[in-house]
Design a binder for these strands. Structure first.
Lengths: 343, 343
DNA sequence: CTGTTAGCGCCTTCAC
DNA sequence: GTGAAGGCGCTAACAG
């Protein structure tokens, strides 16, 4: 099946508008952009003509002239990663409000492809770039001679001369324990994911610090393996065998926490009465469907994306010195039934 | 903390290169683009100069001249939707290979915002647009006087003059049942999501058709409610009370299936021995961590995104009549332990 | 108030 | 083989 006609061509140019309105190009431009002094009557004539011809200014031409495109590149290492999407949303949202459009580039974890995309973005004269990584481990910098400002989101740059925004995982780890303590728990264990991830290490450090601050000790060692539900199930079984006394389990992710909940249920332990469980990431699909619903830490990723966009927006086009260094953004506790029983 | 210097300026123009190489602008252009007849010696001189100056052609200028930007818009109704992301990935991937860059626009379900973004994309002179919806229900067309080709992905356009690509949910529904039958099951029930979704209705129709074709009948009515794990748990409990004889449950989503699995486990029914369970969407986080792992239907969304990109690519810039109508893309069965016991 | 002129950076005829 | 000139669509000085 075929539709008869190919789409209409792109609409008229400013020249056409000027001719129809019977004025010069420059006057038409001024009239449309509300600039300069133009008689009200001629302005109306121009606007009418533009309306009639369906005129829309060609941004390419504008950008070429102005040297600014109101365009940014979003260079991600991996779109699959669950953490990238909210950041993307936040950034797109913040930019959209400022009439800035976003080029999306997915390097899929490949360095060559990243370089390739970077070049393409620069050839298109983007005004700035956000680099979004999939882990919080520091990543190589794009370098200091990129001709536009760059902000690193989630995965910070290894180079302190760059500006990076990343969630404060250590604070998140502390928050896990502080909340459990405030729920009256004292015999706390920690099951988390892949020890090769900075996120796992940082959260574990936070857990230790908060325990130490309260004069407590972790029950058992930190249990590292991977970020899966399956590991959560297995780890919980091992833990309860060796440390049946635990009254709270701080998990490194919501997936792990889901597995932990399953095992506790299998073993007949009541949550939260016998054992409180807390997850991390606040992945709603997992947390709100768990039995009971899962308390968790939210990294405010959408907010992080928005912040990154705002920072970029502020320095784009200016030549002032740019802020540098890694900023650790606050995370947030979301309390549900797995730590505090519903009445 | 501040980094000392603002980034380097954008690199040299072709003019600079020409000057350094001691040739005219035109010659430099030819040399760099491998066009026209240029002496080997001068070509080398030009390329050296370009290299030295870090010259990269300004795509804006090129696009302005050529009337084509090698740029497309990806207009999504909702980035949160889990189905949009794989499509996005597929499209970005396919375009990336063709040197086309993607503008990402999220209308967040708002019509006004969609119009706004559409206008912005056209002002930037994109060569084409992909509209990605979050449900398979038909959506309003952007209209026939958009000056560039448009392809609708996932959510088809209401207007048959548009080209739409959407997964074949009816075939998916049939596939659910056919697989269960091939596993020797005959007493089949169907628990699915929100009846307001075309996806729920289409899959249910497929389920009915396949049962009828095999001379079987559904056990109980189709159970509609919402797409949650919680509903899966509740529905399964109701179902087993009224129809304890069922030996297979076809679910409308993986979330629902997860809930069903939970209830079966609570009631002491063995999966797949007593009751086989099959999900829909093949959301790996859910399917591969289920106990047992969940058989499911995969809609090949990444492939769908790639197809959409390819179609657009083919007609972009040409004026030939464009294909129209809604195409239903094949889905795929992924077998795991919830329908066939592991040996 | 309005129109003319000069580009933004690049590519493509056309003469030489 | 090379260069000069025109123009893609628009805006920012300037004159008139």
């Amino acid at each position: 099946m075929h539709s008869g006609q190919p789409a209409a061509p792109y609409p008229a140019t400013l020249n056409d508008v000027a001719k129809v309105a019977g004025v010069s190009l420059a006057t038409a431009s001024k009239a449309i952009n509300g600039r300069g002094d133009v008689a009200e009557s001629t302005r109306k004539r121009v606007l009418d003509a533009a309306e009639r011809l369906g005129f829309t200014p060609n941004q390419l031409a504008r950008s070429l002239l102005a040297g600014r495109t109101h365009t940014v590149g979003l260079l991600t290492s991996d779109l699959e990663g669950r953490f990238v999407i909210p950041i993307l949303m936040g950034a797109e949202d913040a930019f959209g409000a400022g009439q800035v459009n976003v080029f999306l580039c997915d390097a899929r974890g490949d360095n060559i492809r990243e370089q390739h995309h970077l070049k393409a973005l620069l050839n298109r004269r983007v005004d700035g770039i956000i680099v979004v990584g999939r882990q919080t481990d520091p990543r190589p910098s794009l370098g200091q001679n990129v001709p536009v400002p760059v902000v690193y989101a989630y995965a910070p740059s290894e180079d302190p001369a760059d500006l990076s925004l990343t969630p404060d995982n250590e604070a998140g780890g502390r928050m896990l324990v502080e909340h459990l303590i405030s729920c009256g728990r004292t015999r706390i264990a920690h099951i988390t994911g892949d020890p090769a991830y900075a996120a796992a290490q940082d959260r574990a450090r936070g857990v230790h610090d908060a325990l130490a601050a309260a004069g407590l000790e972790l029950h058992g060692e930190v249990m590292f393996s991977d970020w899966s539900e399956r590991w959560g199930r297995d780890a919980a079984a091992m833990l309860l065998e060796q440390h049946p006394e635990v009254d709270a389990i701080a998990c490194g992710s919501d997936q792990i926490a889901r597995g932990v909940l399953d095992t506790l249920r299998d073993l007949g332990r009541q949550v939260p009465e016998d054992v409180a469980v807390i997850g991390y990431d606040n992945w709603e699909v997992l947390t709100t469907n768990a039995r009971p619903e899962l308390t968790s830490i939210d990294a405010n990723l959408q907010q992080l994306g928005r912040e990154a966009a705002r920072h970029l927006f502020k320095v784009m086009g200016t030549s002032e010195p740019r802020p540098a260094g890694t900023r650790y953004l606050p995370v947030r506790l979301v309390i549900r039934g797995s730590t505090i029983a519903r009445r």
